[in-house]
């Protein structure tokens, strides 16, 4: 059984070697086209990491009426903490606000105005799992309804803009990936079809000597899988080159780097190999009956 299996594997490689020119063209085409998916996935992963960071650091500043005492402000902070979606709320007293003012502007507000007009406030941090877009508006509306809340400040616009672009990028990349993977199936399928036509003599003889359909098909399937795998490995090499080149140019202007993520590349190789397997199965089912 092992001998038979090894023989069929070697037949697959023999078939690949025999049609090496067509195989080379297929591997190159797969390598180039799928490298775009991989590169897109790496960029997407980097944007996603940035978004996660932005979401985890996202906070609201709630300013209270200057007329309330720190004690009353503390009660409001407790109330805000109970709103669903709020992870933590921290009181900034009038005194602390004055200290922050002095740190930022270098002037003591009591010396300037003889009183402290700064209101007490609180910093609100939100519950986020890092992966889902933030929806802050309902929380803001609830806080604004609380008595003695004067103003709620947030940086929601920037984050939501990045998220909107990221979603667009994600949709486009998914579309491109589907098209490229379907293209891979068709490409492999056509290459295997050519290989089948080129090996009609072998197929006829195998049928005469009692080979089952599985026995005849297996080497062609192996051929397709190997082509897909080589194509994916070539794509990985291209992606590595892209990453190095892009980082070189990015570093001329920024400190930002695109990160090489081996996990994404490994997933890409598995996915492309799976689709290549589908392509070879399609060919042998349609053209080897």
């Amino acid at each position: 059984m092992i001998d038979k299996f090894l023989y069929l594997i070697s037949e697959g490689f023999r078939s690949l070697w025999r049609a090496k020119l067509a195989g080379f063209a297929t591997v190159t085409a797969i390598g180039i086209s799928t490298s775009f998916i991989g590169f897109g996935a790496l960029i997407g992963q980097d944007i996603s990491d940035l978004l996660q960071l932005a979401r985890s650091q996202y906070r609201l500043e709630v300013f209270f009426s200057p007329l309330i005492t720190d004690n009353e402000a503390n009660q409001l902070v407790q109330k805000i903490a109970q709103i669903p979606g709020v992870r933590k709320s921290t009181l900034v007293t009038k005194q602390e606000a004055a200290e922050i003012f002095e740190e930022e502007f270098g002037e003591n507000i009591f010396e300037l105005l003889d009183e402290n007009p700064l209101p007490s406030s609180c910093i609100v941090k939100l519950v986020t799992n890092g992966y889902e877009p933030l929806d802050v508006q309902p929380i803001i509306r609830k806080i604004e309804k609380i008595e003695h809340v004067d103003e709620v400040r947030h940086q929601g616009r920037l984050v939501s803009t990045i998220e909107k672009y990221y979603q667009g990028f994600f949709i486009i990349m998914t579309g491109v990936a589907i098209v490229v993977l379907l293209g891979t199936v068709i490409l492999i399928s056509n290459t295997i079809r050519l290989s089948i036509y080129a090996r009609r003599d072998l197929i006829d003889i195998l049928k005469l000597v009692g080979a089952t359909n599985q026995f005849i098909r297996f080497p062609f399937v192996i051929e397709g899988i190997v082509e897909g795998m080589f194509g994916a490995i070539l794509a990985s090499a291209f992606i590595y080159g892209f990453v190095r080149a892009t980082n070189y140019f990015l570093n001329l202007f920024t400190h930002y780097n695109i990160h090489w993520d081996f996990q994404i590349v490994a997933i890409m190789i598995c996915v492309i190999t799976t689709f290549s397997t589908l392509g070879s199965h399609r060919a042998v089912r349609r053209f080897l009956t």
């Binding site: 001998d3 038979k4 023989y7 003889i205 195998l206 000597v209 009692g210 080979a211």
Partner: peptide, 14 residues
């Protein structure tokens, strides 16, 4: 050897 490979005869016996 081809028909024997098809049947799955061990290498040495082939």
């Amino acid at each position: 050897a081809l028909p024997l490979r098809v049947i799955g005869v061990p290498k040495k016996e082939i």
